[in-house]
Amino acid sequence: MRKATIPDIARHAGLSTATVDRALNGRKGVSAANRHRVLKAAEELGVLPSEGMVRLPSRPAHLVFLIPFGQNKFMRDLARSITNLSTALPLVASCNIVTMDGIGPDALDRALDAVSPNTHGVGIITTDQPRSRATINRLCESGVRVVTIASDLPDTARSSYVGVDNRIAGRTAGQIMGMLAQGRTGNVAVILGSRRFHGHSERERGFREFLREQLPTLTVASAIETGEDNRRSNAATLDLLRRMPDIAGIYCVGASRTGIVEAIEPLGPRRPSLIMHDLTDSSREWLRRQLVDVVIDQNPRLVGEQAVIRLLGSIAATTPLLSLKPIEPRIILRENIPAAAP
């Protein structure tokens, strides 16, 4: 199916191509009623998602997304969402997904070597470190627009952050842990990929905050960084269970989830409560088998779509600062698992 064009939108809306062009690019001379007709027609033709009420560039843009895949299924779902929407948008001239071979500043620098000089916008997932921030600022200074995805780097010139409010996600996990504990006292553990991910450190902070404020009977006895490695998370969980056989719960902040599940599975109903992030084929199955209690999902389809739209919006805007509207996390239980994407 070919991409819809401005003339297609004009015919669908019953307006001139000039009016459509002005409406899509936020120019003056378009009435509110006609602007609404244009945006509605664009949505119906699949040019804009329902969230796409943003200014768009007048010319097709070249976009690049730097994504550290590793063992993380969320990243692959995110990349698929970005590619699917970009393919359907006439204002995306090209969309290149660059697979990063790590999560830190070295991997970011290597990935940027693959970015073409004609690139208009870059979406990035990386750790919040001084070198990463400096790299992003240099990229912005060169005229390239940048959005951070899933984990923010707030002290940079990036245009926008796309993802959940990770501190609130952590507080949500804290409240759920309290509900699962049912008034019991005891220890819980936090297992995270890396505190260098701003999102991971914010989730841990929110979780600890909630327990300290609302659930003083639960204590975070252990916080373990795994580097998103399943072997490390498995060994760390087994060691945790040996040291604290009565541990009440585990909050898995990032990836390396398989190692945790494999460690607690032999315990059967005596296992600690387990909360994790991101709904994937694996976490669906773990929910069904009652190996995981709750999944806090950040909806990779929506994150990917908004990353593309916000990147296009930042390219068109006279200022790189857009309003920040974090995506609301979804609480997934065994009884409300959404159908898998086709």
Rank of each mutant, 00 (worst) to 15 (best):
R196K: 12
M1S: 14
V303A: 13
G227I: 14
K40D: 15
P338G: 02
A42H: 11
I315M: 02
A223G: 07
H200W: 04
T19C: 00
V54W: 11
A42D: 14
A223E: 11
P154C: 03
I264G: 00
F207L: 08
L192K: 10
A32H: 06
D8V: 00
T258M: 00
M53A: 08
V308W: 09
P90S: 08
E225T: 14
L287V: 08
A107R: 07
L91A: 10
P300H: 12
A4F: 10
T226D: 13
I315C: 03
V30Q: 03
A157Y: 01
P329Q: 02
S132E: 01
T185Y: 06
G26K: 04
G29A: 01
V47I: 09
R131F: 06
V98K: 13
A93F: 11
E335H: 14
E43N: 08
I224K: 03
V308P: 09
D77S: 11
L240I: 12
V98W: 11
L180N: 13
P7D: 02
V190Q: 06
E225S: 15
H120T: 08
P68Q: 01
A93M: 13
N230F: 06
I332K: 06
R171Q: 15
I97H: 11
G121I: 10
A41P: 10
P272G: 00
I125Q: 08
S16M: 02
E43G: 02
V164Y: 00
H277W: 01
G26T: 06
V98G: 09
R11S: 12
R310L: 11
N166R: 02
